[in-house]
Design a protein around this nucleic acid. Sequence first.
DNA 1: GACTGACATCAGCATGGGCTGATATTGTCA
DNA 2: TGACAATATCAGCCCATGCTGATGTCAGTC
Lengths: 104, 104
Amino acid sequence: MLMSVDTDLMRALGDPLRLRIVTLLARETLCTTHLIAETGARQTNLSNHLRVLREAGVVETEPCGRFTYYRLRPEALAGLAEGFGELAELARATRADDRKRACP
Amino acid sequence: MLMSVDTDLMRALGDPLRLRIVTLLARETLCTTHLIAETGARQTNLSNHLRVLREAGVVETEPCGRFTYYRLRPEALAGLAEGFGELAELARATRADDRKRACP
DNA sequence: GACTGACATCAGCATGGGCTGATATTGTCA
DNA sequence: TGACAATATCAGCCCATGCTGATGTCAGTC
């Protein structure tokens, strides 16, 4: 089964701060206040990045009083891992067989 | 062992045309002329994208007369797959244990 | 050597998107 | 209800980057 990699998901994860957020959330569910403390980013900036991650399906929110917890959605990352794993496997086979299209 | 995901590599792959190039190259080693025909992009544009992919370590080149073959480097994609696989695994465990930092 | 074709590089333009300050919204507590 | 704290939204600035036309470079062919 071939999974294609989602460009929007890649774009969402192709930013240093967002990738930092994701690695933090992989270990612990956190709310914005924690993320501000951990990353040193401004609240507005962080809120924007979290919106991007939310819209890309990378994270989901859980309100807790006046706080908002952010939690990773493992399926999104697992899907990426699978997609790139299949591409890597294909590329390995292509290279092993030296499969190349002839010069025109 | 924990692999961190390379932001530059992600940025390189977070573009629709570049991702298209990568999926094409996974199946077949091609030269620029083929990629122009497959994608419909201009030569200059394609050349720029290929430079980004080359500098990110995603592809490598093999000159063949006046043509230049582009070949994927499976290690790059495999590393990404592994990194995201580990992050997904971590996230699953975090979610399963409901591991969250207390509201401050 | 002149020419052609494949590819890279350069300069310029235009859009996207990241960062910020200001403001709105929502929930909690006194 | 009034005050405050946590978060989202908005408008604007600015830089990174994608696209393009023009040009440079190198290899093969006549």
